[in-house]
């Protein structure tokens, strides 16, 4: 990694639910680990999330959802990322996501899914390791 390069992360909340406690704790933990964290706020459309990722040139996107609409929304996000050429962005997800949906999400390009109770340390480690691998 270049010395001057900071890891830029977008924490995004698609869907209508308002459970942002987890998203904010992850945002804060990543910031405290030295990253630059952009948070979209609640209730973002896939288009808004992808445009934000593009303009902010982020390395990582964390999607948080607890409303159960992930299968309706994540494929659209991944498709838009592909269309806009953001294929090198690392995408992970968290929230209430059933085990049986994970293979489907991985197939569309979501690299990791963190369930309830995941320590923030683990997410930090995951991001750092994956960013190191790239350079």
């Amino acid at each position: 990694m270049q010395s001057g390069k900071k890891i830029r992360v977008l924490i995004a909340k698609p869907g209508l639910d308002s459970h942002d406690r987890g998203a904010k704790i992850v945002a804060r933990a990543l910031r405290d680990a030295g990253m630059e964290v952009i948070y979209t706020g609640l209730r973002q459309t896939p288009e808004q999330i992808v445009e934000t990722a593009l303009q902010e040139d982020v390395d990582v996107i964390g999607l948080s959802i607890l409303s159960g609409a992930h299968l309706a929304l994540f494929p659209r996000i991944m498709e838009l990322l592909r269309q806009k050429g953001l294929t090198d962005v690392l995408v992970f997800a968290g929230g209430i996501i059933p085990e049986e949906d994970i293979p489907e999400l991985k197939k569309i390009g979501i690299k990791e899914v963190f369930g309830p109770g995941t320590p923030t340390e683990m997410i930090i480690k995951y991001v750092l390791e994956n960013m190191q691998k790239r350079t």
């Binding site: 910031r31 630059e36 964290v37």
Partner: peptide, 8 residues
């Protein structure tokens, strides 16, 4: 680190 929240 930094939290960039203005664009919200």
């Amino acid at each position: 680190g930094a939290f960039l929240g203005d664009r919200i």
